[in-house]
């Protein structure tokens, strides 16, 4: 398989009062189609900044980002971005919330609506389409937010601590739901998280970042050798704790 996303020597420097502050230095890695990449790093390292740069919400100082062999600049239609909060619009129905992205991009037509219908039906939200967000549980709201992002058919999905606002139980269930949906749609995903076990449970690869200035410290391949991978049952595998120990040491929390 070929690389769908290539990040090449991305660097970010901030202008601060006492000179320049180098936040990210020469970060490079590439992602294959359908892969799930988790990005972890010590708190305060630039992992969310890196994601914002890929999303085009922040400018990079140097380096290139390529999607399907095309360099991207600024906010790209090829990228879907999901934030920590579901950010559903409380005054819109579930259906109108899901249509929001299409509406903004001026692509609200019969074809896209039909696609939204399929997504809603496939992921058991169709019967709630006329409800308001306040009538749904936290996990369901997050699923609606995911479908809103998928509705615009991005090539790459970015998840920025997308589950950390949920309570632990809901979070485990939502990771499974989201994982199934993403694998089903063969979506290429980059997830930033501070939770090592969440990172392992979903990822094909884990990218470990260093302290500021952020560089790529190591990339781990995660493979549970399972027939059907599931973020819940892979936690029971003995390999899971091995991965966890490795990554914990890499993060160098006490150092």
């Amino acid at each position: 398989m070929e690389d769908i996303l290539t990040i090449q020597k991305v660097t970010k420097t901030y202008q601060a009062k006492n000179g320049e502050l180098e936040a990210i230095r020469d970060v490079s890695f590439s992602v294959k189609k359908g892969e799930f990449i988790s990005i972890i790093g010590p708190s305060g390292c630039g992992k969310s900044t890196l994601l914002s740069i890929i999303a085009g919400l922040e400018e990079k100082t140097a380096g290139d980002i390529w999607i399907e062999e095309e360099p991207i600049q600024g906010i790209s239609e090829k990228i879907g971005y999901m934030l920590q909060k579901d950010s559903l619009l409380e005054w819109r129905t579930i259906y109108d919330n899901v249509l929001f992205g299409l509406e903004i991009r001026g692509k609200k037509n019969k074809k896209s609506k039909a696609y939204v219908d399929t997504l809603l039906k496939k992921y058991h939200l169709y019967e709630f389409k006329d409800k308001l967000p306040s009538q749904l549980s936290g996990g369901m709201r997050q699923r609606v937010a995911l479908i809103r992002t998928l509705a615009v058919k991005p090539k790459i999905l970015l998840l920025d601590e997308a589950f950390s606002a949920l309570d632990y139980q809901t979070r485990l269930m939502v990771t499974k739901d989201v994982y199934d949906i993403l694998k089903n749609e063969n979506m290429t995903t980059l997830m930033v998280t501070h939770d090592i076990s969440e990172a392992i449970s979903m990822a094909d690869k884990v990218v470990v970042l260093s302290n500021r200035p952020t560089t790529v410290k190591k990339i781990y391949d995660i493979d549970f050798e399972m027939e059907k991978r599931d973020p819940l049952n892979c936690r029971k595998s003995h390999k899971f704790s091995q991965y966890f120990d490795c990554l914990w040491k890499e993060l160098d929390v006490h150092g």
Binding site: A55, L57, I75, E77, G80, Y81, L83, Q84, K85, S87, L89, W91, F100, G101, E103, I104, R105, V152
Partner: peptide
Amino acid sequence: DKELLKMAKTFNANKMQVLTKIVIPANI
């Protein structure tokens, strides 16, 4: 809510869209 504005920005919403679809309805 800054999160709502950021969400709209990820879809590349322009200022008019942010005003009519987020800011005004959020402030009824």
